[in-house]
Amino acid sequence: MNILAMFKPNRDAKHYPGFGAVGVLFFTFLYLPILVIIAYSFNSNRIVSVWQGFSWQWYASALQNEGLLNSLRVSLTVALFATLVATVIAVSAALVLERGQNVKHAKLSQGVVNLPLMLPEIVFAVAILILFSQLGIQSGMLKLILAHSAFCIPFAFLPIRARLQGMDNNLEQAAQDLYATPLVTFRRITLPLIAPGIFAGSMLSFVISMDDFITSNIVSGGGATTLPVYIFSLVKQGVSPELNAISTLIMVASLLIATPCWLIAKRSR
């Protein structure tokens, strides 16, 4: 009965036959490669595409890989510092642009904060490489932190601004009517209210920094290799089962970060 109904012409004018099929194909295209990586990561055979049997061995060897762990350490340090810097700058800019009175050149300031979103990343990467070499900065870590802080700012800024736009400022005005100083108002009223936005923004910039390849690849050197740059060097050597295990671990980590952010964004909407 139901099967027959599928073949009856749908009278709904908003229904477009075939769009559903494209949708199904699209999601298959998007997730099939990921599922293939996960499946192959459990293959005990060293030749990736020939199935031999289930095994955890590639995860064990990935977790003992010194180069991988070192690059993970570099990435985490860089992402932590960059997120901290970007979030503080983004919060203060968002507060001024959304709550400040008589802000001059507000449009221009928006553009300045979002500047990194407008440039292709390779342009920023080579530009900052030349700057660093002119300034004579040697430390790879410092270069990475400075560059990542700059391009993470808009990713921290946008969720915080969205949160500020979504709530009215009655409570803040009430606090000021009751003689709270601006700092007290910020600490007791505004900060707790925009906390979800700050959380989402900082998580986003953390992930953007962790994932960045183009800038890190050009700027790094001086003994600091980030995780994506290390993985890239592995991919260049070709497909391998250990690489499948590493990719799966990274995807699991991404899923663990993305899901709470998504839930928070959904609830605050």
């Binding site: 192959y40 994506p228 993985i231 890239f232 991919v235 497909v239 990719s247 990274i250 991404s254 899923l255």
Partner: peptide, 17 residues
């Protein structure tokens, strides 16, 4: 969801396929 996954890993998925 793919946005949260590292770009290098996503391109590697294409290489593998």
């Amino acid at each position: 969801l793919p946005f949260w996954v590292s770009m290098v890993v996503r391109v590697y998925a294409c290489v593998l396929i």
